[in-house]
Design a protein around this nucleic acid. Structure first.
Length: 261
DNA sequence: ATGGTAGTAAAACTA
């Protein structure tokens, strides 16, 4: 294998989305797929559906049916861990998996609700804890990937109406600063490497906004970031509108990047 | 300026 295709997708329920995800995987054949918001308890995860098409799957969810992360891969990870290094670990929001050529961290960052709430403070703290986790456990000189639903739109061009969203939990100055601080450890936004300054490229469409997909009222909050050595191996990065989005308002798109091995 | 809906789960809660 001379290439590694990596996809990230907030599935918003893996059980509802299986009929979309499986054909997409069979058509696109990614080496790795990171998923967020699987929304299923571990004993109800549709493991067989993925094993039948020749993939290994690691996952961790909660009994309440919230959050949940998974990594699908052709190669079995050498090692993997769930959650952050300190409490609360949020084991249904982070997976670190080590493969033979690189490490990957798949995150579902807390959304934050409203900026004047505890939930937003929790989100900000979560991002700073993640930064500490990267600092303590990873060498930025090695091949490391950080991807997932990061719940941050980094720049004005990453949302459709930046002027009205200054106080949104995915666009507020403090959350952008936290994201930029993590990025400055040595991560490169692979999508922006290939689409610099290109507006109107979104990975999330709120189903509560009427015709959000048709009117392109979206957010770019899902990301694939790579350390310098890994980014040098990248070939492209694109947003793939998942089939369901074309039919009716839904959630997230699939973000895909390819790397040379 | 709110609230709009999808999903889990079995009444709210999250996004």
């Amino acid at each position: 294998m001379d290439k590694i295709k990596i996809a990230t997708y907030n599935v918003n329920s893996i059980r509802i989305r299986t009929r979309i995800v499986i054909p997409w995987i069979e058509e696109n054949k990614p080496e790795i797929m990171c998923m967020q918001e699987t929304k299923v308890a571990n004993d109800k995860f549709p493991v067989k559906d993925f094993e039948e098409i020749g993939y290994n799957i690691i996952f961790n969810g909660s009994k309440t049916g919230r959050n949940g992360v998974a990594i699908l891969s052709k190669e079995k990870p050498k090692e993997y861990f769930f959650g952050l290094h300190n409490e609360p670990k949020d084991e249904d929001r982070l997976i670190m998996a080590e493969f033979s050529n690189f490490k990957i961290i798949n995150t579902y960052v807390p959304q934050g609700f409203k900026i004047d709430t505890e939930k937003y403070q929790y989100k900000l703290k979560w991002l700073y804890r993640l930064m500490e986790y990267f600092n303590n456990n990873f060498s930025m000189n090695k091949d490391v990937l950080w991807c997932g639903d990061i719940n941050v739109a980094p720049e004005d061009i990453d949302i459709h109406n930046p002027k009205n969203q200054k106080n949104h939990v995915c666009f507020h100055k403090d959350v952008k600063q936290a994201y930029e601080k993590i990025k400055s450890l040595g991560f490169i936004d692979i999508f922006r490497k290939y689409h610099p300054r290109e507006p109107g490229q979104y990975t999330f469409f709120d189903y509560r906004v009427r015709d959000s997909v048709k009117r392109n009222l979206g957010w770019r909050v899902d990301h694939i970031l790579a350390t310098k050595t890994m980014a040098e191996k990248s070939k492209y990065c694109n947003i793939d509108i998942e089939p369901r989005l074309k039919e009716r308002p839904s959630d997230h798109t699939i973000l895909v990047a390819e790397f040379k091995k």
